[in-house]
Design a protein around this nucleic acid. Structure first.
Length: 481
RNA sequence: GGCCCCAUCGUCUAGCGGUUAGGACAUCGGCCUCUCACGUCGGUAACGCGGGUUCAAUUCCCGCUGGGGUCGCCA
């Protein structure tokens, strides 16, 4: 084994990939990429009630969409596999047996029901009291032929102290712990045990995860020690909270990666927004993926929880969409294309045409959904007219203005943005009109809306025939035809 | 309630003893302008409270208050 860092992301396949999970994956991934270490993906599917194959696939697809690739894990393999916990049951059993043999763990025959009854009895007596497993089976010598769980013999004295890479020294008294369960009665491990055994056997050197896991670290450290394993580093990340300041959950609007994908966000923009939760780099707000790998470090991680802000997220996405350094023209066109293809009734949509038209909406569109909508008029035989816009601008007095414009454009020798602008500007000035009076009906004629890209860009992209055709049609509408 | 953690503009944050407390998003004005944007100029807006330590605290220490996490045969 080398001394290169080995990090992991270990989601449970119980639903969509949550953006909080993405943030965790991202920090691990960034550090692995920065250091040349390994990023391991492990599926923790030991919750048989909630884990589904569909969810597992969603997680893999989400990470791939984000561009977070794993060096070892599902569909990739690796020397420390399998990377799915339900395929590692024998490994957990073996480790549990060893702990039992060494008297560091024991078989507990108390049933779930018995424990639940004890829990409720205590609650009835003292609602504030904390229930702890009383150690009923801790020292029993017999081995009845009944189902049992394996419990860890937690030391009651002393404390666990560790140095967290972002929070510094954390000290927890052992009295806060109890004899927690390692293995269920069906032989499936519980989180702390499964995670530790895997992290040991997979050679994980740094565990970075959300702060909600901080409470798991002391018992996990006890397990490392009991198993005689070398301790990894620990880095806990502050929480992402909703706007009300509570843990981000399903009720808090878009929280799954796919919702952002479907809303037309760029993967790098998602990473850019999420990385700023708990990490900063001076005053820099905008980062490409390469920037992040270059700049990331644990030193610059903060400890305060953050509240999710959809507005800033959108702004960061907008920044990524309009900046060619962050997203190349080809990628931009390809993404826009996929959203155009979802729209009904469009004609002539092709990557080439999208690429040729995209320049006029890039600085305007905040998402790819927005981009597709702004480009909609380009890919129709006739624009979709906004009724209010027509009523407001295609009036009787617009008729001569449109006709004048048509007259000025018909003889145009050169159909370029600059030539069109000059021709129209000269025509408007020469006829004593105001540009806005001519532009307003022309805009609605060409795009169907009162808001659009620059008029001359629109004319250029539409081309001579479509431009003149739309203007004539609008003149007819305005004339009451 | 026990244990753990946190605390700078509304939000994300910079700050690592001496600053007019900076940036970004949001917000409010102005400019630009064929609309919408972009861009640009400017404004409003923060160190939770109380003790220490120090010549000097946003910064270091303690307490308080406030907030969050977690207390399962979930992860």
């Amino acid at each position: 084994m080398t001394d290169k860092p080995r990090l992991r992301f270990a989601p449970s396949p119980t639903g969509y990939l949550h953006i909080g999970g993405v943030r965790t994956a991202l920090f691990n991934w960034l550090w692995a990429r920065k250091t040349g270490g390994a990023f391991v993906l492990r599926i923790e599917d030991t919750d048989q009630e909630r884990s589904t194959p569909e969810s597992r696939q969603i997680i893999l697809d989400s990470l791939r969409w984000l561009g977070i690739d794993w060096d070892e894990g599902p569909e990739v393999g690796g020397a420390f596999g399998p990377y799915t916990q339900m395929e590692r049951l024998a490994i957990y059993a073996e480790h549990a047996e060893r702990l039992i043999r060494e008297k560091k763990a024991y078989r507990c025959y108390c049933t779930k029901e018995e424990l639940q009854a004890q829990r409720e009895a205590l609650k009835a007596k003292d609602p504030k009291a904390e229930f702890k497993y009383p150690g009923t089976c801790r020292d029993r010598a017999d081995q009845p032929d009944r189902p049992y769980v394996v419990r860890f013999k937690t030391p009651s004295e002393g404390a666990v102290v560790y140095r967290d890479m972002v929070f510094g020294e954390v000290k927890t008294p052992n009295s806060a712990q109890q004899d927690f369960v390692l293995l269920r009665s069906d032989g499936i491990p519980l989180y702390n045990f499964g995670a530790v055994v895997d992290d040991i056997t997979m050679g994980i050197t740094l565990v970075a995860r959300g702060r909600d896991h901080m409470v798991n670290t002391p018992p996990q450290i006890m397990l490392y020690e009991a198993l005689g394993a070398r301790l990894p580093g620990f880095a806990h990340l502050p929480m992402m909270l909703n706007q009300k300041g509570a843990k981000l959950g399903k009720r808090d609007g878009a929280v799954s990666v796919f919702e952002y994908r479907d809303a037309g966000f760029a993967p790098d923009a998602v990473l850019n927004y999420l990385v700023r939760f708990g990490w900063s780099h001076g005053d820099q707000e905008v980062f490409s993926k390469a920037d992040l790998i270059q700049a990331f470090g644990w030193d610059a991680c903060g400890r305060g929880d953050g509240k999710f802000d959809p507005k800033k997220f959108l702004a960061i996405n907008h920044e990524h969409l309009k900046t060619s350094r962050l997203m190349g023209d080809d990628d931009y066109a390809r993404s826009t294309l996929t959203f155009l293809e979802k729209r009904e009734g469009l004609v002539g949509v092709s990557l080439e045409r999208v690429k040729a038209a995209a320049f006029m909406i890039r600085e305007r569109a905040t998402t790819f959904v927005d981009a597709a909508e702004r480009l909609d008029f380009v890919f129709r035989d006739e624009p979709v007219f906004d009724a209010d816009a027509v009523k407001k601008t295609l009036t009787a007095e617009a008729v001569p203005r449109l006709q004048g414009l048509i007259g000025c454009l018909e003889p145009a020798a050169e159909w370029t943005e600059a030539a069109l602008e000059k021709a129209v500007t000269d025509h408007v000035a020469g006829s004593g009109q105001a540009m806005k009076d001519v532009a307003a009906p022309a805009r609605v004629a060409l795009t169907g809306k009162t808001a659009s890209p620059g008029l001359f860009q629109v004319m250029f992209v539409l081309g001579r025939d479509a431009t003149l055709g739309r203007l004539r049609k609008a003149a007819a509408i305005a004339g009451g035809a």
